[in-house]
């Protein structure tokens, strides 16, 4: 069983490595969206410092949603998904492996890129740790919840926009707590409670979301 999961992760990473442009597109989208905010809201450093966590989080949310389409669509189109559905390994575990691989190529780069963007917003250095940690805990939750949406909208017309409509409302708690972590630290409250809450979200989502997505996949492929 572990061999199957390792094989799925390895295959998805290999595919991403051969299609680097897909990964780069998401990362560039993230950078561009974040860079647009100072142009729209004005360059006052005080204002930028206040909105920085929210802007970076919202942009990460949109970027990770943009990447969701790829999670199952290609496997669905070429028939690999049917093979996964007929595997002797429980589908929930395969989905979990796919989500992990997906996060490594679409979520992790955002986490690593965030400090650079925070510099643009003049965010003080001590906050960088909390920002990165909150994104590192939060973006996997986004991928996990997003997997359910991606599974439900598989092969449906207007899939992309529909996916956004389904998934974005469910992202709200992660956004609030994630961006809140940095803001709480800025207001001197300490970010620990927020980070623990994000970690709790991650544990719950990791335990349940792959199985829900597996049910959704079986419904969609039928």
């Amino acid at each position: 069983m572990l061999a199957v999961l390792r094989c799925v992760i390895r295959r998805d990473l290999l595919l991403a490595a051969r299609r680097r442009s897909d990964v780069l597109t998401v990362l560039l989208f993230f950078v561009i969206v974040v860079s647009l905010f100072p142009l729209g809201a004005g360059p006052e450093p005080a204002l930028l410092r206040t909105i920085a966590p929210g802007v970076i989080w919202v942009a990460a949310l949109l970027a990770s949603m943009l990447a969701l389409n790829r999670l199952f669509a290609q496997d669905h189109a070429d028939g690999t998904l049917e093979q996964m559905l007929l595997s002797a390994t429980p589908l929930g575990l395969i989905v979990a492996a796919k989500v992990l691989a997906h996060w490594l190529v679409s979520g992790l780069p955002l986490v690593l890129m965030a400090p650079v963007l925070a510099l643009q917003f003049d965010l003080p250095l001590p906050y960088f740790g909390v920002l990165v940690l909150s994104l590192a805990l939060g973006t996997p939750v986004l991928s996990l919840i997003g997997a359910i949406g991606a599974a439900l909208t598989l092969g449906v017309r207007g899939g992309g926009a529909l996916l956004a409509l389904l998934v974005l409302p469910l992202y709200v708690p992660v956004l609030i707590i994630g961006a809140g972590a940095v803001e709480a630290m800025a207001s001197g409250l300490g970010a620990q409670a927020y980070l623990l809450l994000l970690a709790a979200f991650l544990v719950v989502a990791a335990a349940f979301a792959p199985w829900v997505a597996a049910v959704a996949l079986r419904i969609s492929v039928e």
Binding site: T153, L162, L165, A216, S220
Partner: peptide, 24 residues
């Protein structure tokens, strides 16, 4: 609510629409 209705509207097969909507 909008997401539920949009998902059901986007799926042609009634059985799949019901079941996908239910998961959502």
């Amino acid at each position: 609510y909008f997401g539920f209705m949009a998902l059901q509207a986007a799926i042609d097969d009634a059985r799949r629409a019901d079941r996908a909507g239910a998961v959502l």
